[in-house]
């Protein structure tokens, strides 16, 4: 894929444990590059989730905290309120952020916490073995929706960006994907912007990144990239849902 191959200072020299074709690694790299390019590596504190990215504390080359499942925005709030000059980000999956941690997410946004949340939406619980996530598509088979997700039983896919964008404290909310070189470049820009919004003290920023889980989708890596384009993006359209006022 056409990401730069130069090593970024933002990542520690450590091999990712992600499955082949998983795009968590790409997203790590984009976040790390953004932190490095903004020159804030030394004042950045990251908070990792419980999910496949649980070991992100080994990968990001900055101070890191491992939070309990879903609680990263609350932990990040604690850090940021003690260290207002720091750059604080959370990196969370869709189970972590949009199920068990919905309240923490919504209220961090409502308080306008000056933190940046990287929200990795792969439509499934990766780490625990492919169970339904709040973002699982209708009809999608998972280990806990063996007959496909039915709205009559398990409700509808949760559109986090659209929802968070309605919150006054949220300054920047956008959805990107990492399924093609072009989209990866856009994702990078969005992540940079989110950190800039934080640096300017404008409020809460959230970048939702559509990501792959070939392992639990039961697809090959190329098929998984295609699935993002053909199945996910129609339900989760890409684009900005909220931008800072001075940019409107």
């Amino acid at each position: 894929m056409a990401v730069s191959t130069k090593r970024t200072q933002g990542l520690a020299d450590k091999h990712f444990h992600y499955c082949p074709g998983c795009t968590h690694g790409i997203i790590h790299r984009l976040v790390a590059e953004a932190i490095e390019e903004l020159g804030v590596l030394e004042k950045t504190v990251g908070v990792c989730p419980v999910g496949c990215a649980v070991f992100a504390y080994d990968y990001f080359n900055c101070d890191m905290i491992e939070a309990a499942h879903g609680r990263a925005p609350a932990v990040a709030t604690g850090v940021k309120r003690v260290l207002p000059e720091s750059v604080v980000f959370t990196y969370q999956g869709d189970g972590d952020l949009a199920a068990i941690g919905t309240a923490e997410t919504v209220h961090a946004a409502a308080r306008g916490e000056r933190i940046t949340t990287i929200f990795v939406n792969n439509a499934v619980y990766g780490m625990t073995g492919g169970q339904m996530a709040p973002t699982t598509l209708l009809g999608q088979k998972t280990t806990t929706t063996p007959f496909g997700r039915q709205s009559s039983v398990a409700g509808y896919p949760l559109k986090v960006s659209e929802m968070v964008a309605t919150i006054d404290g949220a300054a920047y909310v956008t959805r990107v994907a990492v399924n093609s070189p072009k989209n990866i470049l856009r994702a990078k820009k969005a992540i940079l912007k989110a950190f800039n919004v934080q640096l300017k003290g404008l409020g809460f920023s959230l970048v939702e990144v559509l990501s792959t889980c070939p392992t639990n989708w039961g697809l090959s890596p190329p098929e998984a990239l295609r699935w993002v384009k053909e199945k996910m993006i129609p339900v989760y359209p890409l684009g900005d849902f909220k931008v800072p006022e001075d940019e409107v």
């Binding site: 068990i100 619980y125 780490m127 625990t128 073995g129 169970q131 280990t143 806990t144």
Partner: peptide, 14 residues
């Protein structure tokens, strides 16, 4: 709610 190492229990009941 999913969690290892009991996941086969909800998988079974689903």
């Amino acid at each position: 709610y999913p969690i290892t190492p009991q996941s086969e229990l909800p998988h079974y009941l689903a």
